[in-house]
Computed example of a mutant assay.
Amino acid sequence: MYNTDIPTRAELPTSAQLLRSTVIAILAAAAILVTIVLPAEYAIDPTGIGRMMGLAEMGQIKAQLAEEAEKDRAAGQQGAAPVAAPTPGRRSGLLDRIFAELLIGPAAAQTAPARRSDEMSITLKPGEGAEVKMVMIQGAKVNFSWTVAGGVVNYDLHGDGGGQETSYQKGRGVPGADGLLEASFDGKHGWFWRNRGTSDVTVTLRTSGSYTEIKRAL
């Protein structure tokens, strides 16, 4: 004998209720996009909330570094001086990234990835910053270690995705770090380093664990 009660038709949600729930979810996602994602990722802060929360400053740094990287790539391809400004396509690329972050990314990250190991080295000039991100699902774990040759760096180990953001660790003037990173949610998780010294440094990162992709974001 089963004690589970089967809901009647009257107890099931109506089409109007489902539509209302969908509209509320869309409005909530739009609010998160405008107040958190745009300021933190692209320095776009129409409401001013991102500036009060300190997210706009982080977005400005990322946008500046992205523009500098684009200039360097253009100069390397053309063999000429860096271009003066980013191309108009940056806006469409921004919208594509927002769409991927909020819609495609979370849906594609539901399957647990196989374990993998990677190693990469990044050289930073004085004042230069770089970011490396891994695509991870909630609860996935990665063992990591990174070292700095030639000096020390400031760093922030953080994650973002689906309108969520978190900072796992931060440090100033650090020669390296190691540990276990466990993703708090589906998204991109990794490190931002900046060289505040007066000479070039090289950051060597080693990772091993459950993630589908690792690449330099900035």
Rank of each mutant, 00 (worst) to 15 (best):
M1N: 05
I6E: 10
P13T: 03
L18Y: 05
R20L: 05
T22W: 07
V23G: 00
A28D: 13
A29D: 12
L33Y: 04
L38R: 07
Y42W: 14
D45N: 00
D45T: 01
P46N: 05
I49E: 02
E57F: 05
E57R: 03
E57W: 01
G59S: 02
Q60P: 00
Q60H: 05
K62W: 08
A63V: 06
Q64H: 11
Q64D: 02
A66V: 11
E68N: 15
E70L: 13
A75H: 06
Q78P: 02
G79I: 06
A80H: 09
A85W: 09
P86C: 07
T87V: 01
L95H: 10
R97I: 03
I98W: 03
L102H: 15
G105H: 07
Q110H: 14
Q110G: 05
T111E: 10
T111P: 02
A112Y: 12
P113F: 03
A114T: 13
A114H: 07
R115A: 15
R115N: 10
R116A: 12
E119L: 12
T123N: 08
E128K: 15
E131L: 10
E131N: 11
E131D: 13
V135I: 04
M136T: 05
I137T: 08
W146S: 09
T147C: 00
V153N: 03
Y155I: 15
D156L: 09
L157W: 03
H158N: 03
G159L: 02
D160M: 11
G161C: 10
G163A: 08
T166H: 00
Y168C: 00
R172H: 11
S184E: 11
D186Q: 08
D186T: 14
G187I: 08
K188S: 12
H189L: 08
G190Q: 11
F192N: 07
W193R: 03
T198S: 13
V201E: 05
T202S: 12
V203Y: 06
S208H: 14
S208A: 15
S210N: 07
S210V: 11
Y211E: 00
Y211P: 06
T212L: 00
T212N: 01
E213P: 00
I214K: 09
I214P: 01
I214W: 02
A217K: 10
L218N: 13
